[in-house]
Design a protein around this nucleic acid. Structure first.
Length: 186
DNA sequence: CGGACAGTCCACG
DNA sequence: CGTGGACTGTCCG
């Protein structure tokens, strides 16, 4: 019996991130959601009962976190990605910003074409892009951590721990130099 | 409907 | 150079 397309089932995925294990939500179409704090998912939420699907997802994340994989082969379910503009920005990010590269909020806004009326003022659309990144239902897979401010790292959801996660991911990908407490792959 | 935001640029000192 | 202000779209109460 296949999982119905609309139903989300959750599994917990081990991660070396400072935030701990991830919760990943899957539907019949693919991966639909990622939560940094596994405990944020409702205790009563349905668990993924398909061992093959769970193993596929778990292995994809394990390979990425170990530095063995630099791209994702998982099918994605974009339906939680808000409206058209929101989805356009996220898909542009997913498609055009490769492992170990970064883009600024303003440049991503421009490249996505989601703000045609603001072509002349890159600073304005950048804030909207930041808002969209904060509402990214698929963090890590859709690499919102590769979006940085024009003059520095920029922010991240989840407060202090969130910024630590962003730094961890950018260190994994070689964009930041490892710090003394770095515990990821060499 | 009102407020809060994961930014950017420009005009000042 | 450091600071301060105006401004976006989107979500949530």
């Amino acid at each position: 019996m296949e999982t119905s397309a609309d139903r989300i089932e959750w599994l917990t995925v081990p991660s070396p991130l400072p935030s701990g294990p991830l919760a990943v939500g899957v539907t019949g179409l693919g991966v639909a959601a990622v939560h940094f704090v596994a405990g944020d998912v409702l205790p009563g939420a349905p668990r993924c009962a398909d061992p093959h699907r769970a193993a596929t997802v778990t292995e994809a994340f394990a390979a990425y976190f170990a530095g063995r994989s630099r791209s994702w082969s998982l099918p994605l379910d974009w339906r939680l990605a808000g409206g058209d503009g929101h989805r356009a920005v996220l898909q542009t990010l997913y498609r055009t910003v490769a492992y170990g590269e970064t883009v600024t909020y303003g440049r991503l806004a421009e490249r996505s074409g989601a703000f045609p009326d603001l072509a002349g003022s890159p600073g304005l659309a950048a804030r909207a892009v930041g808002q969209m990144m904060g509402n990214n239902p698929l963090p890590v897979v859709v690499p919102c951590h590769r979006v940085v401010a024009a003059d520095g790292l920029g922010g991240f959801g989840g407060g202090r721990i969130g910024l630590d996660v962003k730094r961890w991911l950018l260190t994994l990908e070689g964009w930041l130099a490892p710090t003394l407490d770095w515990d990821g792959p060499g």
